[in-house]
Design a protein around this nucleic acid. Structure first.
Length: 938
RNA sequence: GGGCCGUUAGCUCAGCUGGUUAGAGCGCAUGCUUGAUAAGCAUGAGGUCCCUGGUUCGAUCCCAGGACGGCCCA
């Protein structure tokens, strides 16, 4: 038998089945770069209006991890969607480059222990080098992910123009009276010697000493307290009260509980809960007071011997006092709502200098705000016997002293979550210091900020609630930091009255100056540079000033990126989308929102999307030490960016996601499927020339139908993209490609391979394949950027038209609006169902079979319109389609469905069962094949 | 302790306003194909839809409580 294989039009392409992404992707990057693909498309889109995703700046410190990858790739997907949608989707990446983490790392790098011992300008220079080093590294990693954007012109918070924006924003806020300097109990890092913002805190488990301490009353105090408690009518009978007497002169103490013994020197009060019942017990030769609800737990085994002497509510004890156990002063009894009856004694040690709640209580009662701790965490002279000691070292000493003085009731260890500095990881303390604040309630800023969320879309929608809560609970925003690597707060100190002055005119001068030469000038310029003519101290009229040396919180810096970046160079304010991890509801989403509400009166973005956390394969946080941590560059080098980009779409990226080798392997198989489907289409249009492309109105019915179905698919994906539902788009893609492949591609093999190359049937199919392929690649390009481009470049150049790159194509919104007629989609589904039914036949199967189909007249009308395409689609050798009125028990109008052995014999060339031998020179093939073969040889 | 989110086949995920034999892709098993071939096609086995109550004729879907996981906060 002659081998007719050579006479077939078999697929042909250079597009390899094997992806080898780590090797090929860099070539693609170079190609995009050389062809200026992104910039050129941007220019072309410019007239169509802008769509701006504003980049939340990553911190320029360390390599990017998979959480960054997920976030940054998602951003890129949206930028590319807008680009393909014809929008001016200019993406300016940015970096957050000031701040303590970099300063800290730089000091460590330089081997400098105390930042006071290095010249600030020298330190700033070194920090800048360090930050730029990381910026370069991260930029390289971001580009390697395949992300489009102006990576050679990023915005940087260290740029003079950016520093000027920061200071201008401070000037704006000063003019609006939003900024004040005040004493506050702020979170303080004694290691880094600076105040910290709430956003810079991480809670970690820590074991602290847990002590119960007697605050013993003087005899006069004891008489008053015992009097109140004995006379209080809380169920204790009058006789019992009187018999137990108020004349008892044994020591009387309030028991308090604390896990921070070092704060005791600053104790000035004991807070009780107004509505809680406190009980006075006799225990041996002393009397103690604790909350009744906690007495059994606090007194332990001694509770059994305790004699109840009296009871009172917290409110009844308000304003009484006892003595501090070792400082020479009283500790007054106050009331506070935060006192709970779950832990401790119900009597809360209160040191207004060392706690936010305590501070508020102190303000309410006019208590002294004692702060006997210096910036580095050592006790000052006012701490009495502990002066000079480090606070955490003093813990043990204080406990020991309390013990020897008899004030200690009990001691244990207590494990609890305690605030730590986000970078240096050391426990932080509360410490009362003078700081600059943004007043959240001045000018109803808090409410205006909350209201600003009304105009914002949240993805997911519950983000709105989250965001509002974050604003509602936002404490006064501490803007100042006592460090070097940052933008100065251009405040002055009056040398006459020692008051700090923040004046908008000074800030404007500083903004101008910083914009010209950078913010380092604050350290090198004489103060006069920043004094407006005739400037005098508003407090005392003094004329001599010094520069204050505080820098601004870097959350404020990133909070004004919208002011620094948007509203110029074709970038709109507000932006259309911001997209960050969910932690940014408390971070950048919030800080940006507050500054925008304060200065511009509305939100700086139209839509906020959050992405989830990347955990390891078991759903646990990634950890280098467990071997499950993997950074972005490592993953990209190992698997290639495109597989990982597909992973980002294959999971629900709004939720927390899992990542690891097994997950990648799974999505890798989906990737291979997609790639092979592209390859099939490309390989079958290799010999198509532009002049032979037929339009859809003259395509064969099934081809036309495939194009229509593809349009519906594109519309579906585009709609998902518009809703920011990348994962929905992924599901559509997978469904589409597997359906296309099993129904359409499979049935097209015979017409494509065995017909004459230029046969109209074949050209029609090829035209459809080109159309499907192009739309498919356009839809995939935002996610599978490298592969879509590689595939596009493998399409014969003549067929690519004007589109040099796949990113020159478009979703073709005009066409999508027509949608796909419902009937077409139903017909497609019906053909699929029939095909599945035929394919399920074990024997005869495929071309060995013929199908006899009897359908209702309505179904007949639909199916008959497909002509011979229906037989092709069902992959049988013969099909008879008859109609009859009847009940379609099989469904979809099918009344009878019968598979029989095909007539004729297997054609050696096309494998269909036909009548053979009509051409004596080719006895083993059918007449159609014979004609093709003859034409080839003539 | 509080707020928010989640818990559906081995894995990644769909299941719209309560009624489906609870689905898809991947994996797995089996068969076909060897003219997409380190590919393609088909069939099949896998699920007490986290648990417990409640509302309802009927709940994966609604309500309450609980368990587990995550994020944020205290």
């Amino acid at each position: 038998m002659t081998d007719y294989r050579a006479t077939l039009n078999l697929p042909k392409t250079g597009f390899p089945m094997k992806a080898e992404l780590p090797k090929r992707e860099p070539e693609r990057l170079a190609w995009w770069d050389a062809h200026r693909t992104y910039e050129r498309r941007l220019e072309r889109n410019a007239p169509n209006g802008a769509w701006i995703l504003h980049d939340g700046p990553p911190y320029a410190n360390g390599d990017l991890h998979m959480g960054h990858f997920l976030n940054m790739v998602l951003k890129d997907v949206f930028v590319k969607i807008a680009l393909l949608d014809g929008k001016y989707a200019k993406f300016v990446p940015g970096w957050d480059m000031h701040g303590l983490p970099i300063e800290y790392e730089t000091l460590k790098y330089l081997g400098v222990k105390d930042f006071h011992s290095i010249d600030p300008l020298e330190l700033r220079e070194r920090c800048k080098e360090r930050a730029l080093f990381w910026l370069d590294r991260q930029r390289e990693q971001r580009v390697r992910m395949g992300n489009f954007g102006l990576f050679d012109r990023p915005y940087r918070t260290i740029d003079p123009s950016f520093e000027a924006t920061i200071v201008s924003a401070l000037a704006d806020l000063t003019e609006r009276q939003q900024i004040y300097k005040g004493l506050r109990s702020t979170l303080w890092c004694i290691h880094d010697e600076t105040a910290l913002a709430e956003a810079e805190i991480e809670y970690e488990t820590r074991t602290s000493p847990s002590i119960y301490v007697r605050f013993t009353a003087t005899s006069e105090q004891a008489v008053r307290i015992a009097g109140v408690m004995a006379s209080g009518d809380l169920g204790l009978s009058a006789s019992a009260a009187s018999s137990r007497g108020t004349r008892d002169d044994s020591p009387l103490s309030v028991l308090i509980w604390t896990t921070t013994p070092w704060t005791l020197p600053a104790n000035v009060a004991i807070a009780l809960r107004a509505d809680a019942t406190y009980a006075l017990y006799r225990l041996g030769d002393e009397r103690v007071i604790v909350a009744e609800a906690l007495a059994e737990r606090v007194l332990g085994e001694r509770f059994a011997q305790a004699a109840l002497l009296g009871r009172a509510t917290g409110a009844q004890l308000d304003d009484l006092a006892v003595r501090h156990p070792f400082m020479d002063r009283d500790s007054v009894i106050v009331l506070a709502g935060y006192v709970d009856l779950e832990t401790g004694t119900g009597a809360v040690h209160t040191a207004p200098g060392h706690g936010a709640d305590d501070f508020d209580t102190g303000l309410r009662y006019g208590l002294p705000i004692l702060n006997p701790v210096d910036a580095a965490g050592r006790f000052t002279a006012s701490a009495g016997p502990y002066a000079g000691m480090h606070i955490f070292d003093a813990n043990a000493k204080i406990v020991e002293d309390l013990n020897s003085s008899g004030a200690l009731w009990g001691v244990a260890e207590f494990e609890h979550s305690y605030p730590h500095c986000w970078r240096c990881r050391n426990p932080v303390i509360f410490r009362a210091t003078a700081q600059w604040f943004l007043a959240m309630d001045q000018n109803v800023l808090r409410q205006r900020t909350i209201d600003a969320t009304d105009a914002v879309d949240y993805v997911p929608e519950w983000g709105r609630v989250r965001q509002r809560q974050m604003i509602e609970t936002h404490p006064e925003w501490c803007l100042s930091r006592q460090r070097t690597w940052g933008t100065p707060i251009p405040a002055l100190i009056c040398l006459e009255c020692n008051e700090a002055v923040l004046d908008a005119r000074v800030a404007r001068l500083a903004a101008k100056r910083f914009g010209d030469v950078g913010a380092g000038a604050w350290w090198s310029d004489p103060v006069e540079t920043y004094l407006p003519p005739d400037f005098v101290c508003p407090h005392c009229g003094g004329k001599r000033f010094d520069k204050e040396k505080n820098i601004v919180d870097i959350w404020f810096e990133s909070g004004v990126t919208h002011l620094a970046v948007l509203g110029r160079d074709g970038l709109t304010w507000p932006s259309d989308l911001v997209l960050e991890g969910g932690d940014q509801f408390r971070g950048w989403f919030r800080s940006s929102l507050i500054t925008a509400a304060a200065i511009k009166g509305r939100a700086p973005y139209r839509r906020v999307m959050k992405n989830g956390w990347v955990n390891d394969e078991h759903g646990r946080p990634m950890s280098k030490s467990l071997g499950t941590g993997i950074d972005s560059q490592e993953a990209v080098g190992r698997w290639g960016a495109d597989v990982l980009r597909l992973w980002a779409a294959s999971v629900e990226p709004i939720d927390d996601v899992r990542f690891g080798p097994n997950v990648v392997e799974q999505v890798g198989r989906v990737y291979r499927n997609l790639r092979n489907r592209m390859r099939f289409m490309i390989a079958n249009i290799d010999d198509l020339s532009p002049g032979e492309i037929v339009t859809q109105d003259v395509m064969e019915p099934i081809d036309h139908l495939a194009c229509t179905v593809t349009d519906a698919f594109v519309a579906e994906v585009k709609a998902a993209y518009d809703r920011c539902q990348i994962h929905d788009a992924y599901l559509s893609v997978v469904e589409f490609e597997s359906g296309m492949s099993s129904l359409y591609f499979d049935s097209l093999k015979d017409p494509l391979y065995s017909r004459a190359a230029a046969d109209p049937r074949r050209r029609s199919a090829q035209s459809a394949l080109l159309y499907v392929l192009t739309r498919f690649l356009t839809v995939l390009a935002p996610v599978l950027s490298f592969t879509a481009e590689e595939a596009w470049q493998a399409v014969p150049a003549a067929l690519r038209g004007d589109a040099e790159s796949i990113f020159d194509t478009s979703f073709d919104a005009a066409r999508l609006r027509n949608g796909a007629p419902e009937n077409d989609l139903r017909l497609w589904q019906q053909v699929r169902a029939l095909r599945a039914r035929v394919a399920a036949s074990v024997s005869p199967r495929d071309f060995e079979a013929q199908l006899r189909l009897v359908v209702t007249p309505a179904a007949h009308k639909r199916l008959a319109a497909l002509g011979d395409n229906l037989r092709e689609a069902l992959v049988v050798s013969q099909l008879t389609l008859d109609q009859r009125e009847g009940s379609d028990e099989i469904g979809d109008g099918v009344i009878d469905f019968e598979i029989l052995p095909a007539d004729g014999a297997k054609c050696a060339r096309c494998w269909k069962y036909r009548e053979l031998g009509s051409d004596p020179d080719h006895p083993s093939i059918c007449a159609d094949c014979a004609r093709v073969v003859r034409a080839l040889s003539s």
